[in-house]
Nucleic acid binder design. Structure first.
Lengths: 212, 212
DNA sequence: TGACTTAGGAAATGATCGTTCTCTATGTTG
DNA sequence: CAACATAGAGAACGATCATTTCCTAAGTCA
């Protein structure tokens, strides 16, 4: 709301109502967003219909639109939630890794596990969005690009740590290694849509040879 | 049409009309199928609407359905065409490679090039189908699984050739190596939806360290 | 308490989805 | 030439799509 001229201060204040006004939500936003995530993971953006989102969340179309403006808004919230959650989980896993090489190994394991079983069949929301990248609008396209860039940056950080702690040889081209690992991780999730990856330890061991 | 009892031979023949009967098609099937491929590559199965397929092929909905029964039929033809074409192209490339290791290297290059530029942005039909795997019916799911299995088998063949010609060390676990390469190749296509891969030679060189 | 503001729920909206139908055109076969 | 069979074109079909609207419910605030 735009106020062109107001005589008294309280009129201006009242034109920006506090967020506590009106009937409060009967559901928890975080919970609802979490429930939309599997829908987008399984069906992608185009395939995730409002009807499916309704049944997944238990909300009516009206409430969904009041809370998220439109389908794009639901997707954006789901995407943010998914990426944040995964990063938290990975960060927790990385605590027990002491060297850069171990952190890379742990990241590989993290993705291999996500590519297995029910989780693997459900798929990766980032990968699913990647496939529909040309369909998404500019802002979402950039969000996706940023997400991938951040993942790449995280790999580069781990590689540099490896250089410092001596677990990775000094001559290794860092950027190219990160690119290769990034592709490999996404590839795990892609193949995991159909089949479980084989022996995780064996695959990790072989992957790490890239760093030799 | 099933004929239970027919007195004369020509009646049986006429009950199975020759394919030359009726008005002939005004378009070339192969050409039309080729034109549907980019639609599925860009939008996936769900996103490829009949309307988009109409404009891509220049056909009307009626002709499309007469030729392919339904949307699923169009997709199946496109998928078959795409896989066949890609395998032919790769096979031609592999002719100039003399050892197993060189054939692996050439395969990596083939995928890196496909992941670059316009081709990369258009995406891989196999990968796109992989993402929608849970949505596809049983038969298509199996076709997809077969395609991946055949690609894996091709990698195993190259690796075995490498064992024979001495370009790959004898102790290398073949199956696990093939799994890793398969994921890496799909990963190239995934990331290629957004960005061009970097220095191909560098990436190939690093990838081949998996085989050391 | 009464004015205000937002949420919930369900029906309604127009667009688009995949598919079918109808009619005409164009070939082959006897 | 007549009978037959399929193709082409486009309108029409019901289903589903994302979104909006309308009304009631449930809070806050003065």
């Amino acid at each position: 709301m735009i106020v062109l001229y107001v005589g008294f201060m309280n009129n201006i204040v009242s034109s920006f109502p506090s967020p506590a006004m009106g009937r409060p939500r009967a559901f928890d936003m975080e919970t609802v967003i979490a429930r939309t995530v599997p829908v987008f993971r399984e069906y992608g953006y185009a395939g995730a219909s409002i009807d499916r989102l309704k049944t997944a969340t238990g909300l009516t179309a009206g409430s969904l639109y009041k809370a998220f403006t439109d389908k794009r808004g639901v997707f954006e919230a789901a995407f943010t939630h998914y990426v944040k959650q995964r990063r938290q989980d990975l960060a927790a896993r990385l605590l027990k890794a002491s060297t850069g090489r171990e952190r890379i190994a742990e990241s590989l394991r993290f993705y291999l596990e996500a590519a297995s079983g029910f989780e693997g069949r459900q798929g990766c929301l980032v990968l699913a969005s990647l496939i529909e990248a040309t369909t998404l609008d500019g802002a979402l396209h950039e969000r996706l690009s940023d997400t991938l860039a951040t993942n790449r940056a995280a790999l580069i950080t781990m590689l540099r740590e490896g250089l410092q702690d001596g677990s990775i040889r000094a001559e290794l081209p860092i950027e190219a290694s990160a690119d290769l690992l990034l592709s490999l991780l996404q590839g795990f999730r892609a193949v995991g849509k159909l089949h479980d990856p084989g022996d995780h330890d064996a695959l990790i061991g072989m992957s790490l040879k890239i760093l030799d």
